[in-house]
Nucleic acid binder design. Structure first.
Lengths: 199, 199
DNA sequence: GTCTATAAAAGGATAGAC
DNA sequence: GTCTATCCTTTTATAGAC
């Protein structure tokens, strides 16, 4: 693996575990067994490492996140809840310390460089677009007038809020209740379509 | 105003504007026009200032947040959306840079001291409890079997997720769409009760 | 309780040899 | 492209006078 990629992977994990400000350049060097000259050869500053990490996450959402979560699942609505179930697994496996890497950075960085903010937004957009594609694939199981982009964003909202509370309370039940509320909402949408079809 | 309170108020605002790690003790001293001896006379460390801020926010939720948002509004369900509307005002007034002070700290601090984590959780609980009281006050307008604690947490989830996305995209429409999805969910719950009453 | 001065460490970043 | 050494700033916290 080339040095640049090594740095990105180490920084990605450290930013996720400790946050951006609490990760020092020395931390990244220690984890990669590199020296500061190497890092500053590829990146002008620590912030440029962050930018590379955010680009890496944005470009890897399909392979790193969606593909594993959706293996063997074809139903578009079940794919949405399978993705949420994969977050549940990460929460449980981390003893409820899991945080969404993008959400955490989005709230940690209060005055981000425009490039950083745009990449955070692009990561959210990529996630929501994947959900929106599922909602579109669900076709007439959902109301035809439904704003599918808005509902896709709402799925992201529920995930982020659920992860935030589960981590803060150190209790996955807070995530489970958010998913269960979202599931009830989906069922009411699907039942609304069926009721109108009967009428 | 006593010195201790001055420090808490300045720190509260700075933690909210810049985050905990990006606020230095020197920042707090500069804003209060105090010297480090004064701060360290009242607080053993910077983290103890954070603890005092979180206690202040927890104890002030009624006066500082709920009372202004609920002035002149008696309907319990409208109170929930009035609270969300007060967040919308803060988002717009801050040019979409508003972040929930608790949510931001909850995601910034990755390995918080137990006391800090418990206070973050207590702040979430206080907020959700206020919403739950509204849901209980709504009585039979909502399904009798509804898990009102879970729905109250879901309102918090929607607020936090909506604020996060509005800030990241610098666009209040992301918050509006989250509220509108939540509103549709409430309407489907209320209509479900009415439909069962007619049957 | 508040002041000034300063310790002690950690942080981001650079220089120049190899 | 990678190494070592180091500069300079910021940061938390303390010491001791008043």
């Amino acid at each position: 693996m080339d040095t640049r990629t090594k740095i990105i992977l180490a920084a990605m994990e450290l930013f996720w575990l400790k946050g951006y400000n609490s990760t020092s350049v020395a931390d990244i060097l220690s984890r990669t067994q590199l020296n500061s000259g190497s890092l500053y050869h590829f990146f002008p500053s620590k912030q440029d490492v962050l930018i590379a990490v955010l680009e890496f996450l944005r470009d890897g959402i399909g392979e790193m996140l969606l593909a594993p979560a959706w293996a063997g699942i074809d139903d578009p609505i079940e794919r949405i809840f399978a993705l949420l179930a994969s977050y549940r697994r990460m929460i449980v496996e981390s003893d409820c310390t899991y945080g969404c890497p993008i959400g955490s950075l989005a709230l940690e960085l209060h005055e981000p460089d425009p490039k950083v903010r745009e990449l955070l937004a692009a990561n959210f957009t990529g996630w929501a677009n994947a959900i929106e594609a599922c909602l579109i694939a669900a076709g007439n199981r959902l109301p035809c007038g439904l704003d599918r982009a808005a509902l896709a964003q709402f799925v992201l909202t529920a995930m982020e809020g659920g992860v935030m509370q589960a981590r803060t309370h150190r209790d996955v039940a807070f995530f489970d209740r958010a998913v269960s509320m979202l599931r009830a909402y989906f069922e009411s949408l699907e039942q609304g379509v069926q009721a109108r079809a009967r009428a």
